[in-house]
Design a protein around this nucleic acid. Sequence first.
DNA 1: AGTGAAATTGATAATTATTATCAATAATAC
DNA 2: GTATTATTGATAATAATTATCAATTTCACT
Lengths: 148, 148
Amino acid sequence: MSTSANKFNKILFTILKRNGLKYTKQREQILNTFLSLKGHTSVDTLYEILRKTNPSIGYATVHRSLKLFNKIGIVEMVKVGNQKALYEHKDKNRHHDHLVCVKCGNFTEITSDELENLQKRIASRNNFQIIDHKLIVYGICRKCKNKR
Amino acid sequence: MSTSANKFNKILFTILKRNGLKYTKQREQILNTFLSLKGHTSVDTLYEILRKTNPSIGYATVHRSLKLFNKIGIVEMVKVGNQKALYEHKDKNRHHDHLVCVKCGNFTEITSDELENLQKRIASRNNFQIIDHKLIVYGICRKCKNKR
DNA sequence: AGTGAAATTGATAATTATTATCAATAATAC
DNA sequence: GTATTATTGATAATAATTATCAATTTCACT
Ligand SMILES: [Mn+2]
Ligand SMILES: [Mn+2]
Ligand SMILES: [Zn+2]
Ligand SMILES: [Zn+2]
């Protein structure tokens, strides 16, 4: 097991304990495998990958765990319309949002301090205590624009 | 039938025709009843209201029509997580976004030219042609903050 | 290390929102 | 008015997510 995996496992252990949850080998596996991937991963995809090394893992467990990881703040979730949830790594200290192409479904990631600050201003103006936000910009990506 | 309803009906007729769609009395009823309401309306709510005056109207028709109205650009749709879609009036020339309270579910509407412009800049920087966008800020509203 | 309370797992059923099907009906172009 | 084509309403199907529950595992405490 790699050093970085060990690091993540310790973090996982700590956060689970803090939330009164148990550290299980499934949760460890799910998180480590998830973190070994990049981009936007669905439960199905992760499940298929996991069962190669652990054929007895349950779909529900993968689903529950990703949802849980999101809830306790260690992974990010993005949902577009009624499509199935996608999970992605949580970038420490830099939130990102998405440009989603309605033609090809591609995600472009964007970060903007201006956007973050603007939201803070709008929220405080409304006496609203921000927990999180999700911005999705729908449109046509560079590639698809050039395809005509 | 009121003058304003007649006006909307003409607009509806024009837009439907432009899209090669038919003007039906169900669509007329659904749009007019929808427009008589304010706030964020679910299919279920609208359906229950509609069947009081037209007991034979179908749920699927209401669902399809709202979806269609959104598609052809005459009503707005907002979806929070896996909850059922909510529909709302389309404010002419001013898009709005939402602050959603995670405690009480309340929606606060926000408009911001700054936000609109910022998105345009981000999009053009990425060579992305914006069609639409949805921003949802999750947090705790004024009311719920004071409740403790 | 052993014990017991409590949480988790895996298989699967249930739920929920949404979409598809299709025969009957209605709208529109001619 | 007729033919063509879209829409409707009832209902089935789909798809994503969540609930159920007996068996298993974790973990705090000896
Ligand atoms: Mn992303
Ligand atoms: Mn609104
Ligand atoms: Zn594209
Ligand atoms: Zn609230």
